[in-house]
């Protein structure tokens, strides 16, 4: 009971409007693309961690930091050998985009309903809105589907050992993507029909049970993020 009350409390206080997240995401992307030094990236990541924690996503923040460190270690300690070069480049790009990924994570954990309402307030046309909503809704489902397919393959006993899939990569590919395509087609048609029946095409303005307004707190948060972000940008040359 106590836990439930706490849950309610956090859901109420946690929510910055989705537009805040979007603005911060834009700022973070600009910064991530313009900074040059690794040190600046570290600082930006630190700033994004603060943002995540402030949005009650400490656990996600921790996971992403660990992931970031692993990637960094990979970039630093891997030799520049032939085959690893490309791999290293990919990992390094990921490292550089980490601040954006982190803010994106906040957006993913925002209720899709409130994102829809926020976009509607920004006068985004309805078809695009519906598309965004279904897209957000689709990702977790596809991940669940992929897990179910993996279970299905294992349950048929086609690849009994962990290395069996490596022996027949072409078959493993087919076994995985055939059902995924079939399932996605089926799911998307069912989702779309259910959306239609539940009034997604209603012409009137949508409401949301979450605050979608842009309040003083939101303004301050965006301002502070932009301020610290630009400070990091200007200090860039000095540190190294």
């Amino acid at each position: 009971m106590k836990e439930e009350a706490y849950e309610k409390e956090t859901t109420r206080t946690r929510r910055l409007g989705p537009r805040t997240h979007l603005l911060v995401l834009v700022i973070a992307s600009i910064l991530a693309m313009t900074v040059r030094d690794d040190m600046q990236v570290h600082l930006l990541v630190a700033l994004s961690v603060v943002y995540l924690v402030w949005n009650h996503l400490s656990r996600k923040a921790f996971q992403l930091v660990v992931f970031y460190c692993v990637c960094m270690a990979f970039v630093f300690f891997m030799p520049n050998a032939l085959a690893l070069g490309t791999m290293k480049l990919i990992v390094y790009t990921m490292v550089r985009m980490m601040p954006v990924i982190m803010i994106g994570a906040v957006l993913i954990y925002t209720p899709p309903g409130s994102i829809m309402s926020a976009f509607e307030k920004m006068h985004v046309p309805k078809p695009i809105l519906v598309m965004i909503c279904i897209l957000i809704r689709f990702f977790p489902v596809v991940i669940l589907e992929m897990k179910a397919i993996r279970d299905g393959i294992r349950a048929r006993g086609i690849f009994p050992h962990w290395y069996s899939a490596l022996k027949h990569p072409a078959m493993a590919y087919e076994c995985f993507f055939m059902p995924l395509v079939v399932r996605c087609l089926k799911l998307s048609s069912e989702l779309a029909s259910s959306a239609e029946l539940r009034g997604i095409e209603c012409t009137n303005a949508r409401t949301s049970i979450y605050p979608v307004g842009f309040k003083i707190t939101d303004g301050i948060v965006v301002g502070v993020y932009a301020l610290i972000g630009s400070a990091i940008y200007w200090t860039g040359g000095m540190i190294s």
């Binding site: 799911l187 989702l191 949301s208 049970i209």
Partner: peptide, 18 residues
């Protein structure tokens, strides 16, 4: 295949919000 939202609360609100 008919759930749109992440949590039960959001799901219940969906039609009414629409």
């Amino acid at each position: 295949s008919q759930f749109f939202m992440e949590t039960v609360r959001d799901e219940l609100a969906f039609s009414a919000e629409n």
